[in-house]
Design a protein around this nucleic acid. Structure first.
Length: 476
RNA sequence: UCCCCUGUAGCUCAGUUGGUUAGAGCAUCUGACUGUUAAUCAGAGGGUCGUUGGUUCAAGUCCAACCGGGGGAGCCA
């Protein structure tokens, strides 16, 4: 059915035209006024039903959630809440929504309740705003990389490489689980499986992206990623989307510059293109925070935070400097930290939060971590103790980006494999890259959902993805 | 996986030291009103108190196990 998106009918320029709209009823007030939403904008269009032209029977079926289309003239509104409205002449009800059963009402629901109604939560203002912004961020990611000379690479979702050490993996198999073929010594006979070897869902496209970068120069991946960790937190998913740029002839500083420029670009894109949705989420956050104690509220509003990030440089410190700051901090001296702070140990959430939310109050890039707490492929620094790693931490979410300059020297990488107990035959292709035209290169991984949390102000990662996959949860 | 909190109407919640027939607001239904803005006003219906077992004359309330949800931690993006 040919029809006009509501987003185009809200300002005065089309007043006087005959229009057709389709959408879902948010409320039907006073037996006369329909608030209609079609997903093209967070705002509703008001339809005015002349009671004399529409029977009681028709009006009775106009309930919250029903799908309708309407034809009529767009006129200047007589009421105060909107500039335009539709004087309806024809009305069609496509699908009723039984008010006794339809669970979504024109009032506040908890995020937990809506999470159980995953098929209907798109109909709410909050989630439609989140998913419009999510789309915009997807577009902004591709736009940024395309405009900066990067090529998108589709790295495999099913992978035979298992030495990345990035986390627990989901096994992929076509073997009959009720009758698994065994070898003579009682182990699973993987030779009979689909790929003739163990296969898993990818935990990262990085190693493959490196191969592409060392030919195409600048590449990025943007795809689904799977971690079979039993993580029950507001910032972990079993299935999430990750963005992984990889750049040849780049060092750790180039990498930081790229990450910061990228973050500022996509945040600015949201501010410039999704003002209505952000305004709504900004207001929602203020309302939600009214019930919280002062010290748990954000000092800046959502939109103020985004503007701040778009306009200010990130703080850059080394791991060693971070340890010094922590050891000289008030909470350390008053023994408020639960975990010890000393050079060589990994930073805990409480330490990261102090640095980002209390000390610097802005995104922080921490570099040059001890080699022992980072992955085997990260480039060893000249001090022999640290590697050229970088994590970007943002207020409220924590780690949003993790990256590094990669070890390009074959002999050092081979030593690292030994140290980390990674058999060379598992990563021969990755090592080969260092044999033939090796060069320094760097990249990072950015959790897309964590970016969406940051941009929308949503506090649970399950509420920024349409169908969250978490332990014991895959209903839809 | 660990620690803490929590589960009462469609939704959000109250329910006292265990004690009659289980409470409110919103939603729903009926009626009134008719330029409303989460419309308003009057009335009505709506409950296996997460599940199972236990203590007790008596359990929404106490105990145990299990199942869900939330917050925090670890792992990380």
């Amino acid at each position: 059915m040919k029809h006009d998106p509501i987003v185009e009918l809200l300002d005065e320029s089309r007043i006087g035209q005959e229009i057709v709209v389709c959408g879902w009823i948010r409320t039907f007030r006073n037996d006369t006024f329909i608030a209609l939403n079609d997903g093209s904008t967070i705002k509703n269009l008001q339809l005015v039903i002349d009671r004399e032209n529409f029977s009681d029977d028709v009006r009775k079926r106009l309930t919250t959630g029903a799908a309708i289309s309407a034809k009529g003239e767009l006129v200047a509104s007589q009421g105060k809440g909107q500039t335009t409205e539709v004087k309806v002449t024809e009305l069609e009800i496509h699908g009723e929504a039984d008010p006794e059963e339809f669970p979504i009402q024109m009032k506040r629901h908890t995020m937990e309740f809506l999470r159980e109604k995953a098929h209907l939560r798109f109909r709410t203002s909050t989630f439609s705003a989140v998913f419009r912004i999510r789309h915009g961020m997807t577009y902004a990611v591709h736009k940024y990389f395309h405009e900066n000379g990067f090529y998108n690479v589709h790295t495999p979702i099913i992978t035979g490489s298992d030495a990345e050490g990035a986390g627990e993996m989901f096994r992929v198999t076509t073997l009959d689980l009720n009758d698994v073929p065994k070898t003579e010594d009682g182990k699973i006979d993987v030779k009979q499986d689909f790929f003739g070897k163990e296969a898993n869902l990818t935990v990262s496209g990085q190693l493959e992206a490196e191969l592409a970068a060392m030919a195409l120069g600048k590449v990025y991946t943007f795809g689904p990623t799977f971690r079979a960790e039993n993580s029950n937190t507001s910032r972990h998913l079993a299935e999430f989307w990750m963005i992984e740029p990889e750049v040849a002839f780049a060092d750790i500083v180039d990498n930081m510059d790229l990450a910061e420029d990228f973050m500022q670009y996509v945040v600015k894109y949201a501010l410039d293109n999704y003002a209505d949705d952000l305004e709504f989420l900004d207001q929602k956050e203020r309302n939600d925070e009214k019930s919280k104690p002062q010290n748990e509220r954000n000092e800046l509003s959502l939109i103020e935070r985004l503007k701040f990030v778009a306009e200010n440089n990130f703080e850059r410190i080394t791991y060693t400097e971070a340890i010094d700051i922590l050891r000289n901090s008030k909470p350390f001296k008053k023994k408020k930290f639960k975990f010890p702070v000393e050079w060589g140990i990994d930073l805990q959430s409480e330490h990261e939060r102090f640095l980002v939310e209390k000390h610097f109050k802005k995104p922080v890039i921490i570099t040059d971590y001890p080699a022992s707490i980072k992955a085997f492929y990260m480039r060893q620094n000249d001090d022999g103790k640290t590697v050229a790693a970088m994590d970007i931490l943002v207020p409220g979410i924590g780690e949003i980006i993790g990256g590094s300059q990669r070890e390009e020297r074959l002999n050092i990488l081979m030593e690292k494999c030994k140290e980390f107990d990674i058999p060379e035959e598992h990563v021969w292709w990755y090592l080969d890259l260092r044999k033939f035209g090796s060069a320094k290169h760097a990249g990072f991984g950015l959790g897309f959902e964590r970016l969406i949390m940051f941009v929308t102000g949503m506090t649970n990662i399950r509420d920024v993805i349409a169908f969250p996959r978490t332990p014991m949860n895959a209903e839809f």
